[in-house]
């Protein structure tokens, strides 16, 4: 792990907080603009009680998407035609323990812990949590998300699991 860099940590934290803000306020277009054109969005699945999947080409993931996949998720939500997504749950993302773990050229690795509280009448309140591993990239307009790996520490999942509640 690299030594503490207050400016970089603050910059990374701002981006992560911004993502949480935009998801919870359902500002989907501004949210997806945080992602680089070639971004990878990945939530592995459980491979056993002790490990998660680690090879998206040979293992099944919960989610493994490029930016077009994320665009399609927004399309699905906004269509009003998805039984599971209408109404959407209220969500509050808590993103914490934000730590810059490596700098590789113009790429910055950042890890964080997350909890999402969500509420929808049929399910009541649901808490899910896990870890994020981000790779951020410095582009002309500022830091963008090049890769986000979301480890979801919940199985026996109640209700949908989608971009807005992990």
């Amino acid at each position: 792990m690299i030594p503490f860099d207050a400016t970089l940590t603050a910059e990374a934290a701002d981006l992560l907080n911004r993502e949480a803000y935009l998801l919870d306020r359902r500002q989907w277009d501004d949210w997806i603009a945080l992602y680089a054109e070639d971004a990878v969005y990945w939530a592995p699945a459980f491979a056993s009680d002790d490990e998660m999947t680690d090879d998206p080409d040979n293992d099944v993931s919960l989610l493994y998407m490029d930016r077009n996949g994320l665009e399609a998720r927004i399309f699905r939500i906004e269509s009003g035609d998805s039984y599971a997504s209408d109404p959407l749950p209220w969500t509050a993302h808590l993103v914490t323990n934000i730590l810059v773990t490596d700098i590789r050229g113009d790429q910055i690795d950042v890890s964080a812990s997350w909890l999402v509280h969500s509420f929808k009448r049929i399910y009541g309140s649901i808490q899910r949590g896990g870890l994020y591993d981000y790779t951020l990239r410095r582009e002309a307009a500022g830091l963008r998300i090049a890769r986000k790996k979301i480890m979801v520490f919940d199985d026996r999942i109640t209700g949908p699991l989608d971009i807005y509640n992990i």
């Binding site: 939530a43 080409d57 040979n58 999942i157």
Partner: peptide
């Protein structure tokens, strides 16, 4: 695998709608 993820998980584009 990609087609499976599209349809069959609780994180997919289909199973959550079935469950609902």
């Amino acid at each position: 695998i990609r087609k499976y993820e599209d349809f069959f998980f609780p994180s997919s584009l289909a199973v959550p709608d079935d469950v609902s």
